[in-house]
């Protein structure tokens, strides 16, 4: 007990720093994957077969392979195969590679959710907008967007909670996120070694974070209950 209390401040400090990196990756992914997902969604539903085919193949590849492999390929392929290590060996490079992999991966999943959300809106909404002289862009922005957001919020909430936990996969390319930080005390770090509890303790960070996110997302859902 005494050693635990002695270790606690050091461990918490390290885990906090690790979790900050986790959060950064989480936010970067959301900020990048939502617009990219919308773009892929429009691409995959394009009336031009070449465009929709292209985007559907991308979606198939990204959703059909493990994110962990995608991370490894994106990080190591340029250096080991092309002999052009674009990412460098620094933590920043690892973060950039992780963010790229996560953004592309999640954008593909988001795009399918968006597609469902848009296609679920009755064509009557488009037609009503058209006969009122609105353009297709105006109809999307002013009529369909909010209806789509309302529809996709429950599946998006699911994806967002999953994303928080999936960030731990970046550990595979040694991104110094919270699990990496917890694990470091097994090998030995800052005078503590052979301790497993910091690793187990990282679960608590995810739990709190997702608890807060759940509350926020539920509130958002409530806010959109003013229409049906």
């Amino acid at each position: 007990m005494e050693t635990f209390l002695q270790q606690l401040p050091t461990v918490l400090h390290a885990l906090n720093i690790g979790f900050l990196q986790t959060l950064k990756l989480f936010i970067a992914t959301l900020v990048g994957a939502i617009p990219l997902g919308l773009l892929i969604c429009f691409g995959s539903t394009s009336k031009y077969k070449i465009i929709s085919g292209f985007f559907n193949i991308i979606i198939w590849i990204v959703r059909g392979t493990p994110l962990m492999i995608q991370l490894l390929i994106i990080y190591y392929f340029p250096g080991l195969v092309l002999h052009n290590p674009v990412w460098g060996g620094s933590e920043t490079g690892r973060f950039m590679a992780s963010a790229l992999a996560f953004i592309v991966n999640y954008a593909c999943y988001f795009s399918e959710i968006f597609r469902g959300g848009i296609q679920g809106i009755s064509v009557g909404q488009d037609e009503a907008g058209l006969v009122l002289g609105m353009s297709k862009v105006e109809i999307f922005v002013h009529v369909k967007l909010l209806q789509m957001i309302k529809r996709i919020l429950p599946p998006m909430s699911n994806e967002i909670l999953t994303l928080v936990k999936d960030t731990s996969l970046a550990r595979i390319i040694a991104l110094q996120e919270v699990i990496w930080a917890g694990q470091s005390f097994m090998k030995g770090s800052q005078g503590i070694s052979g301790e497993i509890w910091p690793l187990f303790f990282t679960a608590f960070y995810y739990l709190v974070c997702n608890g807060i996110l759940t509350v926020v997302l539920n509130r958002l859902e409530k806010k959109l209950e003013f229409f049906r």
Partner: peptide, 24 residues
């Protein structure tokens, strides 16, 4: 073209069987 259709549509109003009001 879309803009021709848009212009032509302004001569007409249309009321649908299923209303198609904007719910939000």
């Amino acid at each position: 073209t879309e803009s021709q259709k848009k212009e032509n549509r302004l001569h007409f109003g249309l009321v649908f069987q299923s209303f198609n009001l904007f719910p939000q």
